[in-house]
Computed example of a mutant assay.
Amino acid sequence: MDNTTTEDTSDTEEEILVYAEFADSVNIEKYNSMHILGIDTKTPIVQMNETFFTGTYENPLGTYMFFENDTSPQSTDPVFDRIPEKNVKYVCKTRKLLKVEHGYITPKDGSGQSTQNQAQQAQEDAIKMVSFKTVQEALDKFKQEWCTNESSSTDNNINNLKES
């Protein structure tokens, strides 16, 4: 029996703090659950309950700092230091900014039919290739189509151009 040592292959996690700024006024406290899909991509998707948001990373102008309420403020000099009514203490900082806005999802109705319709529309819009044996044949064909689309005065202009 061979004695081999196995390495501990546990997943490593890296914790990065991201500041998310919502374009619309969103009351985050009314949502029960939050899921972030593709946080490591350029455009993550945030789902809060049944509402979807799309985000993009931007470079902030400075550093975002996070504070929390300090329940036990300390004073170094009790005689001259006044303790303010609200005290906060530094928690952490980040330079990651995620701008988030509402994302709207539309269902695909008859996706098989829509691709067929798109292909048919593309065929109708395509320019048909035409080949002529001589320049005179091309001019005659152009003149014939032009005359059906334009008035007789335009036809006279083509004749004048041909003669000159």
Rank of each mutant, 00 (worst) to 15 (best):
M1T: 08
M1A: 11
M1F: 10
M1C: 07
N3A: 13
T5S: 15
T5V: 15
E7M: 09
D8Y: 11
D8L: 11
T9Y: 13
S10H: 04
T12Y: 05
T12S: 14
E14S: 12
A20W: 02
A20T: 14
A20H: 09
E21G: 05
A23C: 01
A23K: 08
A23L: 10
D24S: 12
V26Q: 01
V26Y: 08
N27E: 04
I28N: 08
I28L: 09
M34E: 12
H35Y: 08
I39D: 05
I39F: 12
D40A: 13
K42E: 12
I45E: 03
Q47V: 14
N49L: 03
T51W: 08
T51G: 01
F52D: 00
F53P: 07
T54M: 03
T54N: 14
G55N: 01
G55L: 01
G55W: 04
G55T: 11
T56A: 10
Y57K: 04
Y57L: 09
E58F: 10
L61N: 11
G62S: 12
G62M: 02
T63E: 11
M65T: 07
F66K: 14
F66G: 05
E68C: 10
D70Q: 15
T71Y: 04
S72E: 12
S72A: 10
Q74I: 14
S75F: 03
D81A: 07
R82D: 04
E85I: 06
N87Y: 07
N87V: 06
V88A: 10
Y90C: 12
V91G: 00
K93S: 15
K93M: 12
K93E: 08
K96H: 02
K96D: 01
L97T: 00
L98I: 08
L98K: 01
V100F: 07
E101R: 13
E101S: 15
E101T: 12
I105W: 04
I105V: 13
I105Q: 01
P107G: 07
K108M: 15
G110K: 15
S114V: 15
T115V: 14
Q116H: 05
Q116P: 07
N117V: 06
N117C: 05
Q118Y: 06
A119W: 03
Q120D: 14
Q123E: 05
E124K: 12
A126W: 06
A126R: 09
I127E: 15
K128R: 09
V130W: 11
V130Y: 01
K133F: 09
T134N: 01
T134A: 00
V135G: 02
L139T: 10
K141M: 02
F142A: 05
W146N: 00
W146V: 06
T148Q: 03
N149T: 01
N149R: 08
E150W: 04
E150K: 02
S151Y: 03
S153T: 09
S153Y: 06
S153G: 01
T154Q: 09
T154E: 09
T154W: 02
T154A: 14
D155G: 00
N156W: 03
N157F: 09
N160I: 11
N160Q: 14
L161E: 10
L161V: 04
K162N: 10
E163Y: 08
E163W: 06
